[in-house]
Write a protein that binds this DNA or RNA. Structure first.
Length: 599
RNA sequence: CGGGGCGUUGCCUAGUGGCUAAGGCGCUUGCUUUGGGAGCAAGAAAUCGGAGGUUCGAGUCCUCUCGCCCCGACCA
């Protein structure tokens, strides 16, 4: 916990005349978002390739501060830092099957003798390999290790600067427990620690229930920074606080049971969409069933063998299918829209498709809303024809599950209030892995009763660069960045406008003596240039040395967060007063740390 | 992987098949200026992403290719 100011990190003095990077008056083309543009213009980062960035000295200083906060909070819940290799032998990834189930996103190569190697995109395999050697007894549990390490994920579409990149630093921690209660405890500890981390960075986040994705666990939360440039859709209930990623969000579906009527084919020319169909027949969309054809890839995790199977998702016409849910229910490794010929081969007609009369090889997954509704209009699998009064169970069967996509306006699954939706950026996640990795990799311990049990694991990540990107997105104005003092590269920006270098140097040294992190603009530039750069880089405290105030024995102090207000500080006690100001800015952030526990 | 866009000096841009590729910012030198991106003057810096082609002549047209950005698919 920070009490007052955080002690400075190394080389906390810097003259602007000596800063490695320079500022840009215009953002390089392609900088879409404000935060990204300023990070580039202020010289925090530079792009090397698609989704590949260098951190320049200023950016690295911010990252180091964020990392320091993360380390303190991870240590605070008993984490022990270690470091695992980025390059892994493929063997361990073959053991868990992820060598096969993960597609092109994983970087692969062979070493000089032809051994398969991978670039680790996460470290469950590696840490489990370590743990199966170390953790052989209940006496050695629980454990928690973490690292800050580079990951390579060959994302098909990097974008938005540091928000979505291919190479990035992640804080990943891994918990090991003898039982579920232990896992739960570590999970809860992370849940709260993550909020403290984001609070100390002053990044507003919310935790949402999430899909466990490729991690393959059960319970999972994501920490979201809400932003219009976010790529995830978050469903929230304004009344009871229910929050979830749309990928897993549920809602209360109204059903309309009716007496079953006889199925009939009707001619429905030019009605390939639900909209057209409902208009043509003069019925509400909820009286129809919508079909979505996806080709699923299923990978055998022991052999790596791939199989394709057509999946037909059916949802009521007034809803959309959530593909993530569909994929989970189907237990498919990947989904893609099916091609027209693949659909026809299975006896169905795109635009007029339904499970009625389809090939038995098709995996039919029906949303519960369809299963509970009656007499729906569905495709006849014949061009320009639909069937009215179709009923699940009587006319077709399939797996019933929730595969509908929650959206604003739907009823909250907990309290029935209308849900809201917003966009968010995932800055962290926590997963209860269970025994997915310990079992497949043979990470067992002997319990008190003598039995051999798989270690129960959890996995917890924070994207460090993404966190900085979110902060830059959140803290900026038209002139530049205004990062909070906990993540700004320096605490004080000393802008000297006086000719007498000696006076300025003296003040610079005095601040240094107080242990303050100072960026000192000693350049022979005009005042306008210096102010513009100070605005752009956005160091939280600005001290301006001008002839006028110096004559009166004082300097001007402003906060980047409020450039309108100027305070004069007497030279005599400058060091201690600035130190106090640094401390009070830290306190301001500390005061807003709220303890949040998993409900 | 599909659709779209863009590659011209360190950055942002202009450039109608035709002379030595233009401007702003930045950079160098000198003088002036010094409380919000200063002024004057003189400079350096581009084989126009790459390869091939059409043409008397290509930054400009064609083909291929590489890179980057955006939308989608995808993804933590």
């Amino acid at each position: 916990m920070p009490r007052g100011g955080t002690p400075p990190i190394r080389s906390f003095l810097m003259r602007m005349s000596n800063v490695f990077s320079r500022t840009l008056r215009e953002a390089p083309s392609g900088a879409e978002s404000a935060g990204y543009g300023f990070l580039l213009r202020a010289g925090f980062i530079q792009q090397l390739g698609a989704g590949i960035f260098s951190l320049l000295p200023l950016g690295l200083r911010s990252v180091r501060k964020i990392e320091r906060i993360i380390r303190e909070e991870m240590d605070g819940i008993g984490g022990q830092e270690l470091q695992m290799p980025v390059v892994n032998p493929a063997d361990i990834w073959k053991e868990t099957g992820r060598y096969y189930s993960i597609d092109k996103e994983m970087g692969r190569f062979q070493d000089r003798v032809g051994r398969d190697m991978v670039l680790a995109m996460t470290h469950e395999e590696c840490v489990t390999d370590i743990a199966r050697f170390e953790l052989d007894s209940y006496k050695r549990l629980p454990q928690l290790v973490y690292q800050l390490q580079t990951k390579w994920r060959d994302d098909p579409r990097p974008r938005a600067g540091l928000i979505r990149v291919r190479e990035f630093t992640m804080k990943d921690s891994y918990s090991f427990d003898r039982d579920l209660a232990g896992l739960e405890k570590q999970y809860r500890a992370h849940y709260s620690a993550y909020f403290r981390i984001f609070d100390r960075c002053a990044l507003p986040t919310i935790a949402v229930g999430s899909d466990s994705g490729m991690m393959g666990g059960k319970v999972a939360h994501e920490y979201m920074y809400l932003s219009s440039i976010g790529e995830d859709t978050i469903i929230t209930c304004p009344a009871c606080g229910y929050t979830a990623n749309r990928q897993v969000a549920t809602f209360t579906k109204t059903s309309y049971p009716e007496e079953l009527l006889k199925t009939e084919a009707v001619h429905t020319p030019a009605c390939p969409t639900i909209e057209d169909l409902a208009n043509f027949l003069g019925i509400p969309k909820r009286k129809t069933a919508k079909a979505l054809f996806m080709m699923g890839t299923f990978v055998d995790s022991t052999t790596g063998e791939e199989r394709q199977r057509l999946i037909l998702g059916v949802v009521r016409g007034d809803m959309e299918i959530e593909e993530n849910k569909l994929q989970n229910v189907a237990k498919a490794n990947a989904l893609r829209p099916a091609h027209v010929d693949e659909i026809r081969l299975a006896g169905m007609e795109p635009g007029f498709g339904s499970p009625i009369g389809c090939d038995p090889s098709v995996l039919v997954i029906v949303d519960d809303s369809v299963a509970k509704s009656n007499n729906l209009v569905a495709g006849a699998n014949k061009v320009d024809y639909h069937l009215i009064n179709t009923n699940f169970g009587r006319d077709y069967t399939g797996t019933v599950a929730d595969i509908a996509s929650a959206a604003a306006g739907h009823a909250c699954p907990q309290c029935q209030t209308a849900l809201e939706q917003s966009k968010g950026i995932e800055v962290g996640n926590i997963f209860q892995l269970g025994t997915r990795y310990s079992e497949s990799m043979g990470c067992f311990f002997q319990d008190e009763d003598g039995t051999r049990k798989p270690v129960i694991m959890g996995s917890y990540g924070i994207g460090v660069g993404r966190l900085l990107a979110c902060l830059a997105e959140h803290y900026n104005d038209e002139s530049g960045l205004k990062l909070p003092i906990t993540s700004a590269p320096y605490q004080v920006h000393l802008v000297s406008l006086v000719k007498d270098q000696e006076i300025a140097d003296g003040i610079y040294e005095e601040l240094q003596a107080e242990g303050i992190e100072v960026l000192y603009d000693d350049r022979k530039e005009s005042a306008g240039v210096k102010f513009a750069d100070a605005d752009l880089i956005g160091i939280p405290i600005r001290i301006t040395l001008g002839n006028r105030s110096l004559k009166e024995g004082s300097v001007e102090v402003k906060l980047r967060s409020n450039l309108q207000e100027t305070n004069a500080l007497p030279l005599a006690s400058l060091g201690s007063q600035v130190k106090e100001l640094v401390t009070s800015l830290h306190k301001e952030i500390s005061a807003r740390i709220s303890h949040r526990e998993l409900a």
